[in-house]
Design a protein around this nucleic acid. Structure first.
Lengths: 171, 171
DNA sequence: TATTGTTATACTCTATAACTATA
DNA sequence: TATAGTTATAGAGTATAACAATA
């Protein structure tokens, strides 16, 4: 049913994909352990809200629905989290000029300060994790990781809307 | 107090580390969204227990305490999770020959089957995410990711035991 | 009538603390 | 007395369902 993978494409290399999968699994476990450890220490913001704050800081003002879609969470969850961040003064709600029902969530000055402080601590931890990397390896890894993250995101979106090409016979 | 970073070491390249940090952040968000999506679909095993099962499948039989340490979770959490997996027949408790209080947790045949099935689905998803990668890029990325995961794990362990350098008085 | 967002409720995952049984 | 593990219990984090307000 699916077309043959292009010459040189990753799909032609199942063994290499399997090796990558093992390492991604190890990385997921390492990140999980790190997260658990960080959650025990105190922080300005609870763990789950980091994602919200960082994404808005990266992407600029968004509506609740758009934010939820990008984070892969339910709008109800996103609503509660952003409400809490508004209460703490890290986010503000701007009226959406196009739609009276919605508002745009924007990071406040104080929110940007918190993000900057958290990023700094994150850089310190990360610098220790890549201590043995040369500059070239660092740059190469970053570029490949960017493509990988894009691919993950794209694969997720594709599986949510399973009807792009022409014919589809899912359910 | 800390020695100057070696020539070419990542510590000399704060801008490159910052760029990597941004991409790691994006990847964490992508994985988070993927996890949320997978959690909604049905699965043989709840999300949190995947980590337990995969780690034991990788590392071989471990005691609860050792498993908890490697996963960065509390022994009480690990005890409940492994107990549930034993109940489902995916893990079994082998008596620890060295210590009557402990037992070794081992993946059963059925457990290995479940792991294999989950890995297969994971490979399919992953193959889509790296569709544009050449074989060389795949191999290079896997190697760098392995070193990165090692670095993350090492940094976490170091921060748990803050007295490594020359004098050490662990226990 | 459909859509944006919120609130109420229930379920998962987690750690802290109290307990038991071995060492 | 200390350690390995288990079992309450309480707190995050989440989604589902019911609701309000606007389109």
């Amino acid at each position: 049913m699916t077309a043959a993978p292009a010459e040189g494409s990753a799909l032609r290399h199942p063994a290499e994909v399997a090796a990558l999968a093992d390492e991604v699994g190890r990385q997921v476990r390492a990140l999980h352990a790190l997260k658990a450890q960080l959650a025990r220490g105190q922080s300005e913001v609870e763990r789950a809200m980091h994602l919200v704050l960082f994404h808005l800081a990266d992407a600029g003002p968004l509506r609740v629905s758009a934010l939820a879609e990008r984070l892969g969470t339910d709008p109800s969850t996103t609503s509660r989290q952003t409400g809490e961040l508004v209460k703490r003064g890290l986010l503000e709600r701007l009226p959406d000029p196009d739609d009276g029902r919605a508002s745009l969530l924007a990071v406040t000055d104080e929110g940007h300060e918190v993000v900057a402080a958290m990023k700094e601590r994150r850089h310190e931890r990360l610098a220790r994790a890549v201590e043995g990397f040369t500059r070239e390896e660092l740059v190469c890894f970053t570029a490949l990781l960017a493509r990988f993250a894009d691919g993950l995101e794209q694969a997720r979106l594709d599986s949510l809307r399973p009807a792009p090409p022409h014919a589809q016979e899912i359910a």
